[in-house]
């Protein structure tokens, strides 16, 4: 037996790697390569965290990957509450993003659950066609739709309206597809039949029997929509012209424009600190609920 036995790791494919008869050091080498890529992934985030503590002069003047005096993190954070650039207030954008993301996520989860349940459990006329129709809207990307949406909004008065952002985010073909597959797999038909025979109403069956069985699927759709709306840039950029309605992404981009072209001092630290505060909640959420994200990605991998 080789000395490798002292590290009894179980690979995901279940086949012990010593069977391959690899040269010694292969594992070490590949680990080093992975570490290198991890450094590439982490470098910008580390840079962001470090530079959120600097003054504008120090962002450019000192070593990028180490701290410099004076330590300005608290002042930089405080600046997020003021209209430093004339472009708007960061905290307001944060509030908007929270509002858009949470309302859209909840709405899209409810809608996807209902539509998914409908497609999964009822055989009505044209169900197949209708489902294919919903799925075909996946083909047309939101980027290409944003401008047409804006033109419609201009007609119906939804420009610079919160609903203009939320409504399209609520309708999620991916969510419907995920929920349908999830319900297909996790809600036994017999159970529904039994409940019907016992005289339970359709709504009651949906709420009391089907929904509790699909909670992990619901959480996945909720999280995926939350991230998608949190990170959406093009749609709000096109439909909002009033800065008090901006979400974080659009706010930060106007801020970066102001920071680079304006003559005012000290916008760069605000931009960097703002970026950090934008990223942190999502990374935290993601680390806490990683398996749900993976679940969504897994199911997403079987669709498109």
């Amino acid at each position: 037996m080789s000395p490798r036995r002292r590290t009894p790791r179980r690979p995901a494919d279940g086949v012990p790697i010593r069977l391959y008869g690899l040269r010694r050091g292969t594992t070490g080498l590949l680990t080093a390569v992975s570490a290198l890529f991890a450094a590439f992934v982490l470098a910008p985030l580390v840079w962001l965290a470090i530079n959120a503590t600097k003054t504008q002069a120090n962002v450019y003047g000192t070593a990028g990957f180490w701290f410099a005096r004076p330590f300005r993190l608290w002042q930089n954070l405080a600046a997020l509450g003021h209209d430093v650039s004339g472009a708007g207030i960061y905290l307001e954008w944060l509030g908007n993003t929270l509002l858009y993301a949470v309302v859209s996520a909840v709405g899209s989860t409810v809608l996807s659950a209902m539509a998914g349940y409908g497609f999964s459990r009822y055989r009505f006329r044209g169900a197949g066609t209708l489902f294919r129709l919903v799925m075909s809207t996946l083909l047309v990307p939101i980027t290409a739709l944003s401008l047409p949406l804006f033109l419609v909004y201009a007609k119906v008065g939804l420009v610079n309206s919160v609903w203009g952002m939320i409504l399209p985010s609520v309708v999620s073909p991916v969510g419907i597809y995920l929920m349908r597959t999830y319900i297909d797999a996790s809600v036994p038909r017999d159970l529904i039949e039994a409940a019907r025979i016992d005289g339970a109403g359709e709504l009651r069956i949906f709420l009391r029997i089907a929904l509790p069985l699909t909670v992990p699927g619901l959480v996945t759709v909720l999280l995926l929509t939350l991230v998608a709306v949190w990170n959406n840039y093009f749609l709000p950029l096109v439909i909002f012209s009033r800065s008090s309605l901006y979400p974080l992404t659009v706010g930060l981009s106007t801020l970066s424009q102001a920071a680079e072209t304006g003559t005012q001092a000290d916008l760069v630290p605000v931009l960097i600190t703002g970026g950090l505060v934008t990223v942190l909640p999502l990374i935290a959420l993601f680390l806490l609920l990683e398996r749900y994200f993976r679940g969504g990605v897994l199911q997403g991998s079987t669709t498109g």
Binding site: L42, W47, Y233, L248, S256, V279, F286
Partner: peptide, 20 residues
């Protein structure tokens, strides 16, 4: 670690890389 950028908005990623 590798999956983390999935949670970073494209805007923030571009800002970070532009500075870098």
């Amino acid at each position: 670690v590798f999956f983390m950028p999935f949670a970073v908005p494209g805007v923030v990623a571009s800002v970070m890389w532009s500075f870098l």
